[in-house]
Design a protein around this nucleic acid. Structure first.
Lengths: 195, 195
DNA sequence: CTGGTCGATGTCAGTCACAGACATCAGATG
DNA sequence: CATCTGATGTCTGTGACTGACATCGACCAG
């Protein structure tokens, strides 16, 4: 038998989310979270760099999903096709079972500027790996960065829609639509010429 | 004669930048900055919400410049033309005299993740006002947000280039080029049809 | 079986960002 | 002259986060 209960990180995450929902992020101390999970405050900070980070797990897997989508795409494809492939691959990350908890989590983030700041940081991290991967796939700069940032924006808008009240479509379908809106933003001239 | 020396905020900003350059952001305490500017720590926090904020002044004027560019543009113009107008207007904010100090400031920001987080927050704030103004100018969602985020990205890339070593072109010229790269990202099809 | 190493934790003490409450005092205002 | 105001100082507290060191079950070599 182990000396300590396993899954400390998960317990901390769950306890934190509960407390944040109940009494707010700022009104919840890190010691409170730790004790609710049966550990000390010091241990909390061994699992998470700071108090905000407890809400932002799974970042590596998300970035991996984006990257995988591009790696599986044919070389030489246009930048936005690669972005579409990345979004398609990442979409599988957002299953229906996750939608409810994502909604709860987002209410907490939306209620606190410091958490929104961290969320942007995470989104920027996604854009950064996307950019690197696009560049590795032959997209030159600054197109790689522009495409990567656009992809991150499409993802962000799509995610917000995915957890919107009443929304039932899957992430893939939503992202497809938003990406289409992006293309028609600058591609209006092409559309006119086809008509 | 005034009871206190005027321009406390400016003195705090200057002292902070000096100290950050000398010994780094984290190694500099807020009390240190305050005393270097001849006030107490408590006064520092009366002028700035937090320690990071001392590096991020002038946000309101920057946002105003963006907004003004759109307000002066003809109604009914395509989204990206409005974005171009906003960038053009904001470019006047970045005069040659500011370039040197911007470079110094950026080395400090680039050396600290927490400061980068705040910088993204400020950029997101620019995107938000841009989005609102685009929407008010008749651009529907999600195009308004996509165009706004794209504009912010173009601005960010352009600014980075503006302070790059050896760069001598003005902000306007640089931003023009980056915006062109964005258009050709999705407009490639249109270009082909014209050829 | 014994001893030693290892990894996750507890304990303790400390630093520093930041905030509330209250006092102070030069100058504007009537 | 009396009063008010705004920017500041002073004092005190809370809470995020860190370094140093101790603990102890698990696991492994001999």
């Amino acid at each position: 038998m182990a000396r300590w209960e396993p899954g400390t990180s998960d317990r901390l995450r769950a306890a934190a989310l509960d407390l944040f929902v109940e009494q707010g992020f700022e009104q919840t101390t890190s010691a409170e979270i730790a004790h609710a999970a049966g550990v000390t405050e010091r241990t909390f900070f061994r699992h998470f760099r700071d108090k905000r980070e407890v809400l932002f797990g799974g970042q590596d897997q998300l970035e991996l999903a984006f990257v995988t989508g591009i790696r599986d795409a044919p070389a030489g494809a246009p930048p936005l096709d690669l972005v579409a492939a990345a979004l398609d691959s990442a979409a599988q990350f957002f299953t229906d079972e996750r939608r409810a908890s994502s909604r709860v989590r987002q209410t907490v983030v939306d209620a606190n500027p410091a958490l929104q700041e961290r969320e942007r940081h995470k989104l920027a991290s996604v854009a950064a790996v996307l950019r690197t991967e696009l560049h590795a796939h032959g997209v030159p700069e600054p197109a790689a960065r522009l495409a990567a940032e656009s992809g991150a924006t499409v993802f962000s808008i799509s995610f917000a829609q995915w957890i919107a009240p009443g929304e039932e479509r899957g992430m893939r379908e939503i992202a497809d639509g938003v990406l289409g809106a992006l293309v028609s933003l600058t591609g209006a001239g092409a559309a006119e010429m086809e008509a």
